[in-house]
């Protein structure tokens, strides 16, 4: 019996977040237990995007999803480096340093930001991470629409990192709706790891 992740009773995006932790930790095989079909679909999608195969069994309303690292998918000797090796690195990250898109009218900029995250949440080829600093931290906290889209993205395996120092500065740390409280080290690390970083 290998690693067992109990995601029963956990709401989106927690099942995917827990599974992603095992993947990032280098686990070649593990099992996730969930109790809803949406979690199963999202976990299968996560597995596909990370080079894992899945088999699903269900009994008494509990779904057991076995993750197995697919052997041919790795580019290098260790699975964890597979992302940085290889010429066609299509991984990308989004950095959001403000609440609005562009300069000019703030109301228009706010609408544009909502539309950006809506469009992202509906598309394929998702970024590995979305990083928030300074005014941007107000989005996953105070902006319900953007927080909703971020929840959907997190449910599909996108990491949402929100700068803790900035949350504290604005006094909104307790209002974070989605994402992990992060720091400059981790945020810079994700920027370096991505093939490209798109800054809004």
């Amino acid at each position: 019996m290998g690693i067992l992740v109990d995601a029963k009773g956990k709401l989106c995006p927690i099942p995917v977040v827990l599974a992603k932790k095992e993947i990032d930790g280098g686990a070649a095989e593990f099992t996730v237990e969930a109790d809803n079909a949406t979690a199963v679909e999202n976990l299968q999608r996560l597995a596909d995007s990370q080079g894992y195969r899945t088999t699903v069994q269900s009994a008494d309303g509990v779904f057991s999803i076995d993750f197995t690292k697919a052997p041919c998918e790795q580019a290098g000797p260790s699975g964890a480096d597979a992302r940085d090796a290889g010429p066609a690195d299509r991984s990308w990250a989004v950095f959001v340093g403000r609440e609005t898109v562009g300069e000019g009218d703030p109301e228009l900029g706010g609408s544009l930001m909502k539309m950006f995250f809506y469009t992202l949440s509906q598309s394929d080829d998702l970024p590995e991470a979305v990083l928030f600093m300074n005014g941007g931290v107000k989005l996953p906290t105070l902006n319900d629409q953007v927080a909703g889209h971020l929840c959907e993205l997190a449910g599909k395996g996108v990491d949402v990192l929100v700068c803790g120092t900035c949350l504290n500065f604005y006094g909104i740390a307790d209002k974070l709706q989605v994402g992990t409280v992060s720091n400059m080290y981790d945020i810079v690390e994700r920027m370096k790891r991505a093939g490209k970083v798109v800054s809004l």
Binding site: M115, T119, Q145
Partner: peptide, 22 residues
């Protein structure tokens, strides 16, 4: 017009579950 769009968003938000989209 964008003016109408943003006016409508203000008017409808809170009364209906509207989402801004392209």
């Amino acid at each position: 017009s964008t003016h109408s769009a943003m006016r409508a968003e203000k008017h409808l938000t809170g009364r209906f579950p509207v989402t801004v989209m392209p």
